[in-house]
Design a protein around this nucleic acid. Sequence first.
DNA 1: GCGACAG
DNA 2: ATCTTGTCGC
Length: 236
Amino acid sequence: MISIDKDTLDSLLEKFRNEQQTLLPEVKLKNIFLTEKLRLVAGVDTAYWDAKDKTYGACCIVVIDFITHEVVEKVNSFGVVTIPYIPGFLAFRELPLIMDAVKKLTKQPDIYMFDGNGYLHHRHIGIATHASFYVDKPTIGVAKSYLKIKDVDFTMPDNHVGAYTDILIDNEIYGRTLRTTKSVKPIFISCGNWIDLETSTDIVMRLINKESRLPIPVRMADLETHVVRKKLQETL
DNA sequence: GCGACAG
DNA sequence: ATCTTGTCGC
């Protein structure tokens, strides 16, 4: 339902590329925290629907206790979404609602996990990395499918929990596939910012249960967006 | 023109 | 992402 004329879209893309280029030098793939001290992990996801010739979005953030896996807090935001989905520019579509939700948090997460890529991006600024500069916390990218970069495919990991294969492009590790559940498609993990890939993988694996191949915070945020959307479709 | 395409 | 039921396999 989103329609933008070509010139407007082109100028937007130009602006988006510049912002990604500007942020790139600030990305640091080193931990700025101790895993042993992690307490609150946030999962972020967004759902969409069309109504009245407009596209709406609902963003949910679920904060989980890293040790007990208890839900510590849930917040959401919603509204009209005007930026279309463009592969490689997901952050520009989702960040507005994400930040509206972040502002409602009363607890401050130690780390955020996003539904999408981080460093595993043609310019290394996928949504997880991009969002880190706005939430000012370490982030991890967790994607359910692979967005091909420079025509490089990924190698399927072995069929056992914890198996992984790194995604090497131009002699650099962009991210990795990770088998979180046996006989289920792997997910794609990548650093967001201020964290390394080993730690990202470790944190994700420690938040997996038999309910889903996705880590608990992201899975719960995903489910929550569906609940919120249904409620809003009946109300609004 | 055709295929690809995080969410 | 979203539209959608049953069904094959571990």
